[in-house]
Amino acid sequence: MTRSGPIPETVTLHVPFRVVKRGGRKEMQLPEGVKQPRRTDSTLVKALARAFRWKRMLESGKFTTIAELAEREGIASSYMTRVLRLTLLAPDIVELILDGKQGQEFTLSQGLEPFPLAWNHQAPHFSL
């Protein structure tokens, strides 16, 4: 293999993106129209897992109150109550979150806000 010219010392590559804050950390976002790779939000997935684990612990009778369980877990009962609310999400929304298809706008802080309990009213609330 032969080269027709000298190898340049510097190569400049332009990649359009913007930096946005998401869940307390900075993230690169591609411009609109460019297909974004699917990426699960590990914070949101972890919160869902904790919520369903706590629900099972309460339903098993091992703990009788949220306050008792929260004390054992070392967190505030008010936070645990908000996270437990995630167990009321529609199954299709939970699936979207686990598959990383919930959209960039849907974060844990949005998921912890009050939302409609009727499954058919949840998707519009979260802009899904």
Score class of each variant (00 low, 15 high):
Gly33Trp: 04
Ile66Tyr: 00
Ala118Gln: 14
Leu88Glu: 12
Lys26Tyr: 01
Leu30Cys: 07
Arg25Thr: 12
Arg22Phe: 00
Leu44Pro: 08
Ser109Glu: 14
Leu13Ser: 09
Glu105His: 14
Glu27Ser: 14
Lys21Leu: 12
Ala90Val: 06
Phe115Trp: 07
Asp99Phe: 00
Leu88Thr: 08
Leu69His: 04
Leu30Tyr: 09
His121Asp: 14
Val94His: 05
Ser78Trp: 00
Gly33His: 06
Thr43His: 08
Leu88Val: 03
Ser127Lys: 13
Phe106Pro: 01
Glu113Arg: 14
Gly23Phe: 00
Leu128Pro: 01
Glu113Pro: 06
Leu84Met: 08
Gly61Arg: 01
Leu44Ala: 11
Asp99Arg: 07
Ala90Asn: 06
Ala51Tyr: 02
Arg38Glu: 15
Gly74His: 03
Phe106Tyr: 08
Met57Thr: 09
Glu32Ile: 07
Phe63Gln: 03
Ser127Tyr: 12
Glu9Gly: 15
Val20Thr: 10
Pro124Gly: 05
Glu32Leu: 11
Val15Ala: 07
Phe52Asp: 07
Ala51Phe: 02
Ile66Gln: 14
Ala123Pro: 04
Gln29Val: 14
His14Glu: 14
Lys46Val: 13
Thr43Arg: 12
Pro114Ile: 02
Pro37Gln: 10
Glu27Tyr: 10
Ser42Trp: 00
Asp92Thr: 11
Arg22Asp: 00
Gly100His: 07
Arg22Tyr: 00
Pro124Glu: 03
Ile93His: 01
Ala51Asp: 05
Leu84Ala: 03
Glu68Ile: 03
Ser78Tyr: 00
Leu117Thr: 11
Pro6Thr: 11
Lys55Ala: 08
Gln102Cys: 09
Gly24Ile: 04
Val45Leu: 04
Ala123Lys: 11
Gln104His: 13
Gln122Asp: 05
Lys26Met: 12
Met80Leu: 15
Glu32Thr: 13
Arg85Lys: 13
Val19Thr: 14
Thr40Pro: 13
Lys101Thr: 07
Leu30Ala: 12
Ile7Cys: 10
Gln122Pro: 02
Met80Gly: 13
Leu13Asp: 07
Lys62Arg: 13
Pro37Cys: 04
Met28Ile: 12
Leu30Val: 05
Trp119Val: 06
Thr10Gly: 06
Asn120Asp: 15
Lys35Asn: 09
Met28Asn: 10
Leu30Glu: 03
Gly61Trp: 09
Glu59Arg: 06
Arg22Trp: 00
Gln36Cys: 03
Phe52Val: 09
Gly111Glu: 01
Tyr79Met: 14
Arg82Lys: 14
Glu68Cys: 07
Asp41Val: 04
Gln102Thr: 05
Gln36Met: 10
Glu71Arg: 15
Pro6Gly: 14
Thr43Gly: 13
Phe115Gly: 06
Thr10Asp: 02
Leu44Val: 11
Thr43Leu: 11
Leu128Tyr: 10
Thr12Asp: 11
Leu48Gln: 06
Gly33Met: 01
Lys46Phe: 09
Leu13Thr: 13
Phe115Ala: 09
Val94Pro: 02
Ser42Lys: 12
Tyr79Cys: 11
Leu88Ile: 02
Arg85Gly: 10
Thr10Tyr: 00
Ile93Ala: 03
Leu48Tyr: 03
Pro6Asp: 10
Ala70Thr: 08
Arg56Val: 06
Glu113Ile: 02
Glu9Asn: 15
Pro31Glu: 02
Glu71Lys: 15
Ala51Met: 05
Asn120Trp: 15
Thr12Gln: 11
Leu44Cys: 07
Pro116Ala: 08
Ile75Ala: 02
Asp92Ala: 07
Asn120His: 15
Lys35Tyr: 01
Ser77Lys: 15
Ile66Phe: 00
Val45Gly: 08
Thr64Leu: 09
